[in-house]
Design a protein around this nucleic acid. Structure first.
Length: 152
DNA sequence: GCCAACGTTGGC
DNA sequence: GCCAACGTTGGC
């Protein structure tokens, strides 16, 4: 089973908010490659939750996929920041998945932590210029990151 | 706020 | 289908 790394700006949607709510649809992905990754996610897949565009960027914990891809409702909502006028209900462009809180790390796994870890030299988000908000993570990478975070 | 890297748009 | 212009991402 593939695991995932998903980025969110904590001002928009934080891991703490997911912990409070228990579960939440992962909406707003508007990049085709990231969307295709979302569509291939399976229930039970684990998600490394990455806080981006903030004072301390890094991975803060783990979520779990609890519903496979379905139509992202925000694409149809004219009041949403993620509204897409070119998307129709007959042929929707964008998908989302539902994620649920799984576990918090004991410490933040920062970008320097990730870069310093030999097991993570091929991690997609460390590649120059990578901006995908959803990327696959192989099991060895997943285990290495959980270990860095002091998780189980 | 800067800027590199990348995706998307749209004229041709 | 090319490609310049523009917008976005996201670390710093």
């Amino acid at each position: 089973m593939h695991h995932w790394l998903m980025k969110s700006e904590p001002d928009e949607f934080s891991f703490q908010e997911l912990e409070r709510k228990g579960k939440e649809p992962w909406t707003g992905v508007r990049n085709y490659q990231a969307r295709n990754f979302l569509r291939s996610a399976k229930v039970g897949g684990l998600v490394l939750f990455y806080h981006s565009n903030c004072a301390a960027p890094g991975i803060v914990g783990v979520a779990r996929i609890t519903r496979e891809a379905f139509d992202d409702p925000t694409q149809f909502d004219p009041r949403s920041d993620y509204y897409d006028a070119k998307s129709t209900r007959e042929s929707p462009r964008w998908s989302c998945v539902e994620v649920s809180y799984h576990q918090s790390f004991r410490r933040l796994v920062s970008l320097p932590d990730l870069r310093d870890c030999a097991a993570l030299k091929n991690l997609l988000i460390l590649r120059p210029g990578n901006r995908l908000s959803v990327t696959p993570v192989v099991p060895a990478e997943f285990r290495a990151i959980v270990a860095l975070g002091g998780g189980r």
